[in-house]
Every structure is written in structure tokens, then in C-alpha cells.
Amino acid sequence: MPDTYQPRILAFFCNWCTYTAADLAGVSRMKYAPTTRVVRVMCSGRIDPQFILSAFAKGADGVLIGGCHPGDCHYLEGNVKCLRRFRILQRMLVDLGIEPERIRLEWISASEGGKLKEVINAMSADLVRLGPLNLPDALRSFDAEVLKEETEAEVQELVTIP
């Protein structure tokens, strides 16, 4: 691995536009930062905010959602539904200490392989600037301060009701 920090972006791409755009970027041999891990969904409307929180909790430094341009959704308005969730979610995440740059919603049509590349590169650069989020470690260390008396086995033994 290179010495430089490579952020991890969990990317949710809709099947019809952005996933296809990512395919196109590949077919066009565009080179972009190796930061994304793509999870394919049929529509950006499928993206449950839980997925995004879970992604952060499991170690993503950023979450990128790619959907069809408004008006282009394969399912009429799934992307708009995604946008509604996204607007309030991003606001909420800021309150929870997650910088707005860490979560992006982009409309990338099937033909916009170039835009996909630009977005990923730009977001990767933003995340490099922000540094790692590293929530799994943080979540583990949250409980470092609490008392640990019994081992799990002991507790197990105790609570076993005859």
C-alpha cells in the first residue's frame, strides 16, 4: 500500500445511472482514486439512512450516493425520495460531528463516466484533507472507561436460571 492515506468511501450507486456510469468509466479506462467500495442498489430510493450510519460505524470515511438526475429516475422519483432523506440526514450528521463533506449525493447519469471520476477524485481529496474518521476504533474505545468486573463466562454462569 502506498504511504499516503487512502480514505475509504462507501458508494451506493443506483443500478440504472451511476452504476452504469461507473461501468462506463471503466470501459473508457478512466483512472480515479481507488477509494470507493460500490454497493449496488436498484434505485437511490432504496438507500436507508441506516445504511449510511452503518457505513460510518463500520469504518467508512465517507459515503457517496449516486443516483439518476432528477426527472431521469428509472422508478420515476426514487432519486427525489433519496434527496429528501439526504437533506435532513446531512444536517443531522453535522450535529453528530460528521463533516458535510463526508456524505455526498450526486446525480450521475449513465453517460457521465467523466463526472463519476471527477466526483470520486474530488471527494477523495476532501477526505484526505479531513483525515480518517475511524469510527470502529472509536466505538471500541468508548467502553474503555467502564468497569469490567466479571468475565462474560462468569456472568453467563450467574444468570443461568436453573
Binding site: 500500500m1 502506498p2 468509466a25 470501459v27 479506462r29 478512466m30 483512472k31 481507488p34 470507493t36 471520476k117
Partner: peptide, 13 residues
């Protein structure tokens, strides 16, 4: 391929 080898700069990453 489309999301991996074809868009990658270097082999390690």
C-alpha cells in the same frame, strides 16, 4: 473489472 482493474492506476491498491 469496470470498477476495479480498468480504473486503477497501480496494482497494489
Amino acid at each position: 473489472r469496470e470498477h476495479g482493474s480498468w480504473v486503477a492506476e497501480d496494482r497494489v491498491t
